[in-house]
Each structure stands twice: as C-alpha cells, then as structure tokens.
C-alpha cells in the first residue's frame, strides 16, 4: 500500500547523448508501495530515465536517489534492492522454467533452501506446476511475461521497474498481469511502470507524461483528466502530445 515514504527521488536529472538531450531537468518523487506510471511517446526519453534509475546508465547531471542509495556511487547496492523487467524478453529460452527461476534467484543471493521454496511458491501461484520442466521457448508469450515478472521480484525487491511489460500480450493476460502488479504493490513493493496502453495508465496511482525529454504532467489519473478536461487518459495524452507538436 502507498505510504508517504519517498523511495525514488529525482532532482534536475539531465542525460545527454552527445548534443542530444534525452532527459531535460526531470524532477519527481515516487512513494513506497505506489504504482507509478511513466508515460510518453516513443523517443520521449522514458527508457533513458528508467535505465538511469536501474543503474544501467549514468546521468550527465542531477541528483538521483533510489531506495536511499545514490545512483552515482552506490549502483551495486541499488541493484540488490530493485527488480527489472524489460520490454525485450528477458528469460533464457533454452532453459526450463525452474532453471530460469533458480538462476536468477541464485545470482540475487538466495540460498538453496530459499530457492527451492520460492520455486514451489512461484510455480503454484502462476499455475505452472505442469510446465516446470518445459523450455521457455515452448511457453506462450503471456505466460512468459507473467513468469518474467515473478522472477523480477523473486528476491523481494523494494522497487520493481517494468519497461513496457505488456507489449504484445492479449487483453485477458494483460488484466491478469495487472492483478499481479497490484498484489506486489499491496505487499509494499513500489512499481515503476512504462506503458503505451492508456487504459493501463488508469490503473496507476500516479502518472507522469514525458514529452520531448521533459515531464509535461504529473498527477493522479483523475486529477489529470479534470485538469485537461478529458474523459480518458487517452485524451489527456493526445492533448499533451498535440500541444507540443503545435508549439
């Protein structure tokens, strides 16, 4: 559940690639247990910011704290506390379900007993007991994504970053996926999610919308709709995107 404790704090974050400014003075805070939606058109700079928060990329300047750790100096500590699932498929296709679970659990430092328990628990909550020894390559995409999410939080991280987790997934599985996100958030995990689906934006506690490397809006979906006089997040998003392209 959402609390008042700040787990991600970003002040004046700038990231340049040569002369191109991908992130221009970003400022936002994310609270513990919150489902934080990170929206934006393709190329708006979402993934760049996300990679900086995960320690995959170094910011050009600005202050960034993730779970109490500085991204410049404590990126290895951050990695212990976060989970990550990218838009690309991140499980090993030539390994079985169990092998993938125990590999990731192992490199996050769980001991053999914990790995065994986690595996059983994961398989039963996903209903994958029958597929435990099947190769990932033989699983349907929706199942893989649900498994990838479960593996991303196998070490009980404080924050989980999801980069377009539901791309190419059918609506039924997407709903199940969001149910899993809520379950994780209910346990106190902060969820930081990027998406292109505006109906998913409605599920978030708060949403930020990035346009051309800047944060153009940040509020709850209800407030945003009211402010932009829109009936859905889709309209909010289109309004903001159009606003900038007319500039």
């Amino acid at each position: 559940m959402k609390t008042d404790k700040i787990v991600i704090s970003v002040k004046n974050l700038i990231k340049d690639f040569g002369s191109f400014r991908a992130n221009d003075r970003l400022n936002f805070d994310v609270y513990e247990g919150e489902v934080f939606g990170f929206l934006g058109a393709n190329g708006a700079g979402k993934t760049t910011a996300l990679k900086i928060l995960c320690g995959l990329s170094r910011p050009t300047s600005g202050e960034v704290m993730v779970s109490g750790c500085n991204v410049y100096t404590q990126s290895n500590l951050i990695k212990q506390k976060i989970g990550y699932m990218s838009q690309k498929f991140t499980l090993y296709e030539d390994m079985t379900v169990t092998e993938n679970i125990s590999f990731y659990a192992g490199i996050y430092g769980l001991n053999f007993k914990q790995i065994k328990n986690k595996t059983m628990q994961l398989l039963s909550s996903l209903g994958l007991e029958g597929e435990a020894h099947k190769l990932i390559a033989d699983l349907p995409l929706g199942w893989r994504q649900k498994l990838a999410f479960s593996i991303a939080i196998v070490h009980d991280p404080a924050i989980v970053f999801l980069d377009e987790p539901t791309g190419g997934v059918d609506p039924v599985t997407r709903r199940q996926f969001w149910k899993m996100i809520y379950e994780a958030a209910a346990k106190g995990v902060t969820v930081f999610v990027t998406t292109h689906y505006m109906d998913e934006a409605e599920y978030c506690d708060r949403v930020s919308i990035m346009v051309d490397g800047r944060i153009a809006a940040l509020d709850t979906p209800a407030n945003l709709k009211e402010k932009y006089n829109a009936s859905s997040m889709n309209e909010v998003f289109l309004g903001l995107a159009r606003h900038t392209s007319n500039k």
């Binding site: 995960c54 320690g55 995959l56 290895n76 990695k79 212990q80 976060i82 990550y84 699932m85 990218s86 690309k88 498929f89 991140t90 499980l91 090993y92 990731y104 490199i107 996050y108 430092g109 970053f161």
Partner: peptide, 10 residues
Amino acid sequence: GTIEQINVTP
C-alpha cells in the same frame, strides 16, 4: 537482450 537483465542484477 538477456545481458540487460544480467546487468541490473548485483
């Protein structure tokens, strides 16, 4: 793309 997943682990 799995290397990215490895890189976010400790």
